[in-house]
Design a protein around this nucleic acid. Structure first.
Length: 470
RNA sequence: GGCCCGUUCGUCUAGUGGUUAGGACUCAUGGUUUUCAUCCAUGCAACAGGGGUUCGAUCCCCCUACGGGCUGCCA
């Protein structure tokens, strides 16, 4: 398993799906762990649905995740002539044949056997036609598809995740490798491309498990080396159906916007369908690379759970340095804290990072320190401020105004005085002041908060709040 | 319909022919904390069903059910 070559092969018919990201991740982990190559191939042969803007979206998302690919991106559409050549080769060596059954004939036959409750099989009418007969039909201008001559017997392969898979070839039908317009089909193209790219391990979603025997028959018909296969279980939504927008965001970009770091996403995704064989759950990218094993990949599909994602994110934040957290905030919002002193921003982040679950939560909470004036929530204000708490707040403002030194001890003394003056516990003092200063009933320690906001800002806000009760 | 794959707490997952079936997330309760969050403690909660094999099956075999995939001149 030295220097494997793997690939991620999305079709550009949409953004990078969270399931696709997981597939890419496992490919990447395997490549990195074994000093191999991780390649990217864009399967853009569906002209109807493929869009170049999706290619950009997908590559942007992969880059953001840090799943960098080696070598140039392969565009499947560029391999057309190669595909034609391989179809011709199969026609030539007798592993494929021209089938002159027309689409309508096929549809009717399919319908008929459905009504008779029979298993539909593509008739092999043209499978062993003589050269002359074929030529005759060609001369008549009859259109044809190219079908693979599925041999008798069975096809077996060993999947790194699912073990031995065996199917009877008779269940496969002589499937089409080239359409009547000459374009080759997926199961054919994928085998040719993977072979041309020297892919050693095909790692992909298990929705391809049933296609694999067909692809193996293509390899054999062409005399190509078969890769090793590893299929990954699907990611489902909370109702156990394929993960879709109804359940949660499916676009990787959306998770970025929600303030999850790439590392967090990769960490969570890795745990979906893989177990690290230990109690460890929080992983850096490098730790994932070291730990990943196919034999610990689950066979059953996994349900995506945003609650656990949030927990993973929070765990990462507590381990993250203030500096790294700031970089992540800037990545998310380049304008963050514009014009403010770097050291001041650093103190802010230090104060709120460990009580946040996502990067965007930090950014949001940090706004407290930026704005001159606050918007107070009317309901919260009327719930919080009684006559007593207004008077406490008033006294606090006065004490602040009189305060000469700006340090923690001074503030603590002010609080002590307020407590004995009004004969109340600290909660009665802290709560109204916190809300006056921040507009929200939770957050960093009150003394840290006051010190960092600074005397001027505190006084401004206290005056503003008190003006509501004049 | 045919073929392939799967099924352990709500979720992610350990696990073994004999276990009090373990951990994590969530949730609930209590504690710590100047609020919130963290943290700590406790609790709730699972072997899909039926047949075998066996002294004994969650574990091995078969069937059923359920879920997913493929079955296309989509990828």
């Amino acid at each position: 398993m030295k220097n494997p070559r793997v690939r991620f092969a999305p079709s550009p018919t949409g953004y990078l799906h969270i399931g696709g990201a997981r597939t890419a991740l496992f490919n990447w982990l395997f490549a990195k762990q074994n000093k191999g190559q991780f390649l990217l191939r864009i399967e853009d042969t569906d002209l109807e649905r493929s869009k170049t803007e999706y290619i950009d979206q997908i590559t942007d998302a992969l880059s953001w995740l840090g799943l960098n690919w080696d070598e140039d991106i392969v565009l499947q559409s560029k391999n057309k002539s190669r595909h034609q050549e391989m179809v011709a080769k199969m026609l030539d060596n007798g592993t494929a044949y021209r089938c002159f059954l027309q689409k309508e004939e096929l549809d009717n036959l399919r319908l008929a056997s459905e009504q008779k409750k029979e298993v539909f099989r593509v008739p092999q009418t043209y499978r062993d036609l003589s050269e002359n007969k074929v030529q005759e039909l060609l001369n008549q201008g009859k259109s044809f598809t190219v079908r693979l001559k599925v041999p008798k017997g069975e096809t077996e392969f060993t999947d790194l995740v699912y073990g031995t898979i065996k199917v009877q070839n008779k269940d496969l039908d002589d499937f089409i490798i080239a359409r009547s317009d000459g374009s080759p089909t997926y199961n054919f193209v994928v085998a040719v491309d993977d072979s041309d790219m020297n892919i050693s391990h095909v790692v992909r979603g298990d929705d391809h498990l049933a296609n694999t025997p067909k692809q193996i028959l293509v390899y054999r018909a062409l005399g190509l080396n078969e890769p090793i296969f590893a299929h990954l279980p699907m990611i489902l939504g909370s109702d156990k159906k394929r993960l879709s927008k109804r359940h949660a965001a499916t676009n990787v970009q959306e998770y970025k916007d929600k303030g999850f770091t790439a590392t967090v996403i990769l960490n969570y995704l890795s745990l979906l369908g893989w177990n690290p064989d230990s109690d460890k759950e929080i992983f850096s990218n490098n730790e994932l690379i070291e730990s990943f094993q196919f034999d610990q990949v689950q066979k059953k599909s996994a349900v995506f759970d945003e609650k656990k994602l949030l927990w993973i994110s929070q765990q990462h934040l507590t381990e993250m340095s203030v500096r790294d957290a700031m970089n992540e905030i800037y990545k998310l919002n380049p304008d963050w804290g514009d014009g403010l002193d770097w050291n001041y921003l650093k103190e802010i982040v230090k104060l709120i990072k460990d009580r946040s679950k996502t990067i965007s939560e930090i950014a949001e909470m940090s706004e407290l320190f930026f704005q001159e004036k606050l918007e107070y929530d009317q309901e919260l204000i009327s719930k919080t401020f009684t006559q007593e708490s207004v008077s406490i707040t008033e006294d606090f403002k006065n004490a602040l105004e009189a305060c000469q030194e700006w340090n923690r001890k001074e503030i603590e003394t002010i609080f002590d005085n307020l407590m004995s003056q009004h004969d109340v516990q600290i909660g009665k003092v802290m709560k109204p002041i916190r809300i006056a200063l921040t507009g929200i009933p939770y957050g960093p320690g009150i003394f840290d908060l006051i010190l960092l906001l600074g005397k001027e800002m505190c006084l401004k806000r206290l005056r503003k709040l008190l003006s509501l009760f004049d």
